[in-house]
Design a protein around this nucleic acid. Structure first.
Length: 327
DNA sequence: AAATAGAGCAACCGCTCTCTA
DNA sequence: CTAGAGAGCGGTTGCTCTATT
């Protein structure tokens, strides 16, 4: 934190803008201005509210502190868990992560990550004699560091929790990006998901509406060509078809998204999740690794391209996340 | 009780992106 | 097409608080 400048100093320093901590008076001015006038051009806000602050500072103060819908206080375990998962998907895209945590700001989440979670991860890595393969920011490590049992998401029978796109039209669009570190137990799928195992795959109705899978974990993948592409039981005995996460960087994902936007690999109703390529020679593609189990039939068939995750869809209904209670 | 270290967090900085003229 | 302004984002700083010695 920074010391607020002495009021006198800023007042008689002609146009010099104040920096540092906000005084209660400044907060009042900004708050009442925003409530009465709403958000406009921030430099106008600063001027019209009678604040000796730059617009940028006003924006930050409003977003991070004064906004009425902000939730204060410590992060709940559910929120922590969600942050970890979203970070595993999005990396340091704090604003996108914050967008999925109502009442939380990017700054708050960033601080939380950099202080609490990173620290615990560090402690974990120094204390652990058998570090996991993906040590840096693995969500499983983070879960462990936070004492969140990963079985909260995937039970020890390998039951799968899935959070799926409810859009019935997005059946060809998405693929599942697994969370690192949980696959040894099963698969924790996070976000919009549908089968991506064959061309023109069609999801069964049960799939398009699936919020999470029941204990049986049955999952059907239809094929519009008439053949059943997959009937996957994701329960105790099943393994899933997942790309090696470590090979999928966020950057790659975003590059892929850009590349494939210009091809017809996107589902137009849900254009940012994943592309699908029939071009086996495309070295930019990220190969899906067959882990055995139900998806053997798809081995060597195709390659997958990760695209930008459309988390707007993915987390459109945050309440579908069964472990997150925002109340 | 005083000194020190570390954690937490508010706010700034610099950069990129987007929009508009 | 270009330049400028504004908004937004992620990284970093540095102050305050708290725990420890």
């Amino acid at each position: 934190m920074r010391k607020p400048e002495a009021p006198g100093k800023s007042n008689n320093s002609n146009n010099k803008l104040r920096k540092g901590l906000w005084s209660p008076e400044e907060d009042d001015k900004l708050m009442s201005y925003m409530l009465n006038n709403g958000q406009g051009c921030w430099s106008d806000v600063a001027r019209n509210a009678g604040l000796q602050r730059c617009g940028k500072s006003c924006r930050l103060r409003w977003i991070n502190y004064l906004r009425p819908d902000l939730k204060r206080g410590a992060f709940s375990p559910q929120e922590e868990e969600l942050i970890i998962h979203l970070h595993s998907l999005l990396g340091n895209r704090w604003s996108q992560i914050a967008a999925r945590l109502p009442g939380r700001t990017d700054n708050e989440i960033k601080n939380f990550w950099n202080s609490t979670i990173k620290k615990r991860l560090k402690n974990l890595s120094t204390s652990s004699s058998t570090p996991s393969p993906n040590t840096s920011d693995s969500s499983s490590d983070a879960m462990e560091a936070l004492n969140i049992p990963s079985r909260q998401l995937v039970d020890n029978k390998g039951m799968v929790s899935m959070y799926m796109d409810s859009s019935p039209t997005s059946m060809q669009s998405t693929w599942i990006r697994p969370l690192p570190g949980v696959l040894e137990h099963g698969l924790n799928m996070f976000g919009t998901a549908s089968g991506y195992f064959n061309n023109n795959i069609a999801a069964s109705p049960c799939m398009t509406q699936m919020g999470n899978m029941g204990p049986g974990g049955d999952m059907f993948f239809g094929d519009s060509n008439g053949g059943l592409s997959g009937a996957a039981n994701l329960g105790a005995e099943s393994e899933l078809f997942v790309p090696p996460l470590e090979s999928i960087s966020s950057e790659e994902s975003f590059k892929s998204e850009r590349i494939y936007t210009n091809n017809n690999y996107f589902n137009t109703t849900n254009p940012t999740i994943i592309g699908y390529s029939n071009n086996n020679s495309n070295n930019n593609n990220i190969k899906a690794e067959n882990l055995g189990g139900v998806e053997n039939r798809f081995q060597d068939q195709e390659e997958l391209i990760m695209g930008e995750w459309d988390l707007e869809d993915l987390m459109k209904d945050v309440s579908s996340f069964p472990f997150l209670d925002f109340q």
